[in-house]
Write a protein that binds this DNA or RNA. Structure first.
Lengths: 248, 248
DNA sequence: CGTCGATGCGCACACTGTACGCAGTGCGGA
DNA sequence: TCCGCACTGCGTACAGTGTGCGCATCGACG
């Protein structure tokens, strides 16, 4: 570290391989990028800062990654790799799907930058981990007897994505405020009430929500997510061919 | 135009009000920003270019708008203003909700940058137009007899948001490729099939989807959206208190 | 005519992604 | 043992970004 900025090239300052620094590699770069994204969001990730964290120059990264966008795409798929999807062995397809959706949500809330990135890239990018998650969810629905598993997947994932994205953006705002979620909601209430003044339904809803949110905001979000998911699973169940009368 | 870059300040070059340029105003700035966003997406909007389109310098905009983020927030809410929500007079709540959701989707596909922006800002920002849309949807569900309209709204909007965002991102990719949607899908197929090789459910689903998509991709997307929406509305209908047995 | 608030703008600063060409390293072959 | 080569890292540079600051200009009002 001391010799790093030495302006005089000298025999004695010859750089000798430090075994501490595990060299630059695609995996290390993606891993560190995710750490930065988790810490400060997508607009705080710069190639220079990322390079600095890896004891490297900014442009060195380009030996392992074609472009910043590609790096983000890699980080995105890496994050999807954290979502476990159970085998469809279990008897209860609803439980399996619910667990998967909750894992998806948890991942999105852990990596709060996922929402913004997906908003730009879409779910169209075909990374291996996303493909795996989709395939395993398809297996879940197929085993349950759905005739069109991919329709069911699209429906469920769209909901989970939309809800989780909104939640993640909200949580980011909360965290940036330096307050707890309950404090934040409490402080926001006056201006929120003013914004919905004259709108009777929203005023009521806000008053209710705020009262509960001050007590346990995370539980309220959990419940909201579960409500919508159950609505969708109920709707899907109606499309399941009845067991009693097998098709001709 | 000719005198604009004149380096010598001269009495004769005095700027005389050109009545063509409608002056700088918050509305004009937001309107032009939306035009730029629609044309080239969120990463192509820069204060300098926006200023140039308005025959103004970049920093002049800051007299009317505190920050670029605030400008985007204004553009976001302006776009939401394009979503009409019918009065709950009609007999069929499903038709009303469906129309609203389709309008939401249409707006998101017309302004394809909405998805990325919402991914960063969330639906937490309380702009007047978003508030109005929410209120009117709440009225729809309340008139239909739902005990918890805001729960229903959250569910439906999350789905619509997630699906539309994905669609918008996909369409952006297609348009940037300079091909029609059908051509794009056709060209993408080989690498897509390779990506899902070894995943039996996805391979089947892709083959089916691609066959239809080459014929009429937009119709396929419409149908996919409608399918999920109907699933959700079915699930919600189950939560509607039965008309025949009014509560005590 | 003089003053004032509002508006627009040029400049400057710190920072971004990344193209390019050089310097050092380790390895395969002669 | 030595040479050459592929690979990796880096310093420099360029064009572009958001935005703070202070000055010039304007229309309205006393």
């Amino acid at each position: 570290m001391a010799a790093k900025t030495n302006p005089i090239p000298s025999v004695w300052a010859r750089r000798q391989r430090e075994p501490e620094s595990p060299a630059l590699s695609r995996e290390a770069i993606v891993r560190e990028a995710i750490a930065m994204l988790d810490a400060d969001g997508v607009e705080a990730l710069s190639m220079r800062k990322l390079g600095a964290r890896l004891n490297a120059g900014a442009t060195s990264l380009y030996r392992h990654v074609a472009t910043k966008d590609e790096l983000i795409e890699l980080a995105l798929d890496e994050a999807f790799g954290e979502i476990p999807v159970p085998d469809p062995r279990a008897a209860d397809w609803r439980a399996d799907v619910t667990a998967t959706c909750e894992a998806f949500r948890a991942t999105t809330l852990r990596h709060r930058w996922l929402g913004s990135v997906i908003g730009q890239a879409g779910l169209v990018y075909l990374g291996p981990n996303l493909v795996t998650v989709s395939e395993r969810m398809a297996a879940l629905f197929a085993a349950a007897g759905f005739p069109e598993p991919s329709r069911a997947i699209d429906t469920v994932l769209s909901y989970v994505l939309g809800m989780s994205t909104t939640e993640a953006a909200f949580l980011t705002t909360v965290i940036r405020s330096g307050q707890t979620e309950a404090e934040f909601v409490a402080d926001l209430m006056p201006s929120a009430q003013e914004a919905v003044a004259g709108h009777e339904f929203l005023s009521d809803a806000f008053a209710d929500a705020a009262a509960n949110a001050v007590v346990n905001p995370a539980a309220l979000r959990d419940e909201k997510f579960a409500y919508g998911l159950n609505v969708i699973l109920d709707g899907l169940a109606l499309r399941l061919p009845r067991r009693e009368e097998p098709a001709a």
